[in-house]
């Protein structure tokens, strides 16, 4: 067994301490840079339900989502492509993605890849005062 001198132990300890200090600094840096200043809204007020005729499909580009009214029933689809998040565009009876060519049918199911999941369904609620609220989660 090799003999470890006092000097070696001292050096090892110093190196370890320095490495620890570096890691602590790095961790602090990561946390510093990971603060989220603008949390995106988790819900949107869409105004009175009567604003949307029956039947209708209304694109809400700032979300981006599409609000579908069918009789008294409101549903909504996120327009963010499930592949890499580009906004899909409604073309005839389907949705096309400009970035990598995914296509979805009018209810958001995948017709053609590379996307492998349907467009996300968003919850729409009709409140007491007959206004609509869209939830992003």
């Amino acid at each position: 067994m090799t003999k470890i001198s006092r000097r070696d132990i001292l050096k090892l300890t110093t190196d370890g301490l320095l490495a620890g200090a570096g890691l602590l600094g790095l961790g602090g840096l990561v946390r510093f840079l990971s603060y989220e200043t603008d949390v995106p809204p988790s819900e949107y007020d869409l105004g009175p339900a009567d604003n949307y005729p029956d039947p209708s499909r209304t694109v809400l580009p700032y979300i981006p989502a599409i609000l579908i009214r069918n009789g008294a029933q409101f549903t909504a689809l996120s327009l963010a492509c499930t592949h890499l998040g580009c906004t899909v565009e409604e073309k005839g009876s389907e949705f096309d993605c400009p970035c990598h060519g995914s296509r979805y049918d009018s209810s958001g199911y995948v017709l053609k890849g590379p996307a492998d999941r349907p467009l996300k369904k968003l919850r729409v609620e009709q409140l007491q005062d007959n206004t609509l609220r869209l939830y992003m989660d």
Partner: peptide
Amino acid sequence: SLFLFVVGGSTIGPA
């Protein structure tokens, strides 16, 4: 977490 680190938010915003 890497996305948050690089982009400064959970989506692309002013940050």
